[in-house]
Amino acid sequence: MKEVCSSNTFIEVNNVTFSYKKSEIILKNITTSFDKGEFAALIGPNGSGKTTFGKLMTGILSANEGSVFVEGKNIEEISLGNIGKKIGYLFQQPARQLFNPTVKEEIGFAHSFMGKSKEIVEQKVNKIIEEFSLQGLEDASPYRISRGERQRVALASIFINEPSFLILDEPTTGLDIVRKEQLSQLLKSLQPQGIGIIVISHDKDFINKNADRVIELYGGEQHEA
C-alpha cells in the first residue's frame, strides 16, 4: 500500500472505482488529491457521480477498488465519528443533519452530547453564532427558519468540531443571489484559517467566482479543467 503525505495534502484519492450495481460503474479510476486551504469544485451533470465522490471522501461510502487517504491514513480504518472531527460534510438537504429543537442546542450538540461542561459549550456556541451571523436565531427551531439560514446552522453545527476540511454537496440549490453571496463570504472567511473546501455543484457562476480549481466529472471519469 502506498503511504502518502506530502505536507499539504489532506485528502488523497487513489485509483478509486465505485459502483452500486456491478453493471453500472459510477466512478472509474479516479486519482486526485486535495490540499489544505484549497477551494476546489467538483462539477458535472446530474447523475455524473459528484455526490457519490463526495460521500467516498467522507467515508460514508466505501470504494469498490482503490482507496482514499485522509492525512495519510486509509479512510477505511477511521470511524465516521473520527472523520467527522476532520471533515465537515454538508448534505444537499441540510434538514437531514439537524436534530435539535433550537439552533443553540443544535450548534452545541456535538459537544454537549459528549458530556462537555455547559460553560465551555456555551462559550463556543456564542462564538460560532457570531461567526456564522446567526444572532437572533438562537432559540428558533432549525426547521422553521429559511433555507439559507438552515444551511448556515448545519455548517455552524459542524464547525464546533473545528474540522480542517469541508465538503459541501450542492450548497447553492434553493439559494437566491443574495444568499449565495452570503455563502461565498462565509466560505471565504474560513479560508484564512487554512480550511480546505470542496464544493460539489452545477452552479457555474458560484464556482467561477470562488473555486481555485475545477474538476469535472462525466461518464464516471475525471477531467481537470
Partner: peptide
C-alpha cells in the same frame, strides 16, 4: 451518518 459525522463514535 450525519450524527456520527458530528464526531460521535457510536
Amino acid at each position: 451518518t450525519a450524527i456520527q459525522l458530528r464526531g460521535i463514535e457510536i
